[in-house]
Amino acid sequence: MSALGAVFVREARLAWAGGGGAAGPAAFFLAAITLAPLAIGPAPDLLAAIGPGIMGFAALLSVLQSADRLFGDDHGDGTAELYLLSGVTPSWLVLAKVMGQAAATLWPLPVIGLVGALMYGVPVAPAAVGALASLAAIPALSLIAGFAGALAAGIRRSGLLIALIATPMMVPVLIFAAGAGRAAFEGDERALANLLLTLAVSLGATALAPFGIAAALRSRLA
């Protein structure tokens, strides 16, 4: 197996075996979208209007929820050193790692987002656009979480710090991804533009974030 493939498979397997895989983010997502109507009230019009936005917001929180595991363990158990000395280009390696973890843990988010939007009374078409947008947002969200996670790796109770660092960086992708569902719901023709912008941010993050993550990992070993 190629080295990058090996990293992808291993990280997916570790996320699955060690951290319960997709169960954590999925359960968190479900809890968040269950609580929101209880706080806001059951008015159907209101819930349908905020549905696409709440789905994007809850997906973002679910990604943050597991972000401390992304690089925290590697920092403590000596894996980070081994990765940097493995001879595999570090930026490619961390990209494979983050994608492996994301594939294992985040795949239910678009599905729950679709079901959740329908439960909020969002019509099928805009709900599907929102789910598609959250799928397009996952690379950006998980890479940003990875960057924050690498910066804060191994710090005690790093979850809060990671959330604080990652939140401002997730602003654009949240705006575009949630905006896609919102625009589709309102019949605004900018839904497609939002969807494409989400994809653009994910591509940009894929191109740039690995360098940042590799540099962050290295800086934490100095």
Partner: peptide
Amino acid sequence: AWLGHADGLKPGETPRQALRFWADMA
């Protein structure tokens, strides 16, 4: 080849899995 203070092992991973992975990496 590096051996640090920490062994670089994952608690849930068996030596077979870990060593296969590192053999592939190298």
